[in-house]
């Protein structure tokens, strides 16, 4: 994953447990400033090591840490230099999800080594959205649930996100919105 992910994780850990906790994560995973450069794409094993060590510090299972990190990631991105692009991509959940792939395409154009996922809105009702997620990475389902929760926070929606099934290498997530 790219370095911005590591920077976001660092910020989340500092927010939650303080700088010394992150310093311990860095020591345990032999991480230094050179692993936190937003533009650089790092081997996934580095990211996994950082998340695992952070989960241990947070006293959480890795999946739970991934979920809260996914949620935090959206907030971190919108406050970063990427905020204007997120604003541009969509001001409501449906528009945003429908245009995520277009945004990710520009990520790949700008950073050819980046491996980005794909999101397709395959069903839409007033209270329920079904999102199909494709990625050449595995094991990040909890992170995706966190992302969808983060998007709901960002776009003033409340509801739940959960994994509902796997289809031909893709994973389907249902967003149940609290709309009366």
């Amino acid at each position: 994953m790219y370095g911005m992910t590591h920077r976001a994780l660092r910020q989340m850990m500092i927010d939650r447990l303080g700088p010394s906790a992150w310093a311990k994560v860095e020591r345990e995973t032999a991480t230094g400033p050179a692993d936190l450069i937003s533009l650089c794409v790092y081997d996934d094993s580095k990211t996994i090591a950082l998340i695992s060590a952070s989960a241990a510090r947070l006293g959480m299972e890795v999946d739970e840490a991934l979920r809260i990190f996914g949620r935090y990631w959206v907030r971190f991105a919108e406050l970063s230099s990427f905020g204007p692009i997120m604003d541009f991509t969509g001001q409501d959940l449906v528009t945003f999800i429908n245009n995520l792939d277009r945004m990710h395409r520009s990520v790949v154009l700008a950073m050819p080594d980046a491996r980005v996922p794909s999101f397709t809105l395959i069903e839409e009702t007033r209270e329920r959205l079904l999102v199909r997620y494709r990625s050449d990475r595995t094991g990040l389902e909890a992170f995706v649930i966190g992302l969808l929760e983060g998007l709901m926070d960002r776009l003033n929606e409340t509801g739940t996100a959960k994994l509902v099934g796997h289809t031909n290498g893709a994973v389907d997530f249902a967003i149940q919105l609290d709309r009366n």
Partner: peptide
């Protein structure tokens, strides 16, 4: 989006 991404 590309220009926006590059600026970011």
């Amino acid at each position: 989006t590309l220009i926006g991404m590059q600026r970011a």
